[in-house]
Amino acid sequence: MPNDYFAGIDVGSLSTEAVIVDSNKHLLSYSIVNTGINSSAAAEEALSEALQKAELPRNRIAKIIATGYGRAAVGAAHKRMTEITCHAAGAQQLFPEVRTVIDIGGQDSKVIHIGQDGQLVDFAMNDKCAAGTGRFLEIMAKRLEVKLEKLGDLALLAEKAVSISNTCTVFAESEVVSLVAQNHPIDEIIRGLHVAIVNRIWNQVQTVGVHGQVALTGGVALNRGVVNLLEEKLEQTLEIYSEPQIVGALGAAILASK
């Protein structure tokens, strides 16, 4: 049997995704697992699950590209590429008209300008700190005793946003504690946190510029509060794939197929 399938594995700080495509770049299957403390094992688990869903044996995979912060730990990879290039390729595959990709992952966020052929033109990425990333929202949800998946909806319900002056996650957490103590409504604090994260992302957007249609990728794209505020800033509707976490892995698989 020919080995004409391709895999992409995106090892992120919170989750690891694997995607399998055929030689026509059609998505056959995907999986999402927690990364945990062993990136290598998470990559293996994600790949096995995706293969199982596609009903393919391992030897039908011609090439694997690993991406994400844990890409170096993927022993099965034939090649490693950055998540910036892979998100660009994935977004280009899903939305050919898109020229700007905003990716908000667990540990970092990036804004990518892509050319007509999906090539990277420019990009900006957050610094070491967790401000403007999924981790920021995760920590705040925990502090406010709200489920992470409910955070965005609560932000939309608030009539106004409490101003959060710190974008540093550690300082913002202290600020939130003070705001709670001052009896500010929780939904207004949550909206304030969303405004803070979107402002942080907006700085990166301005570095690269807004070019054509914009796609939002990464787990934070599932947060309607962030989406809503970003769309207000951009004055356009964001293109969002139904499983926004897998766009990087999809891009890796697409690049493996080339």
Partner: peptide, 24 residues
Amino acid sequence: ETEINQVLSGQIVTRLEAFLEMIG
């Protein structure tokens, strides 16, 4: 942006590698 005597963070490595992928 780096500090003179600190090792490169994962983000900086990714930025550098993405730039190298970009220039082809």
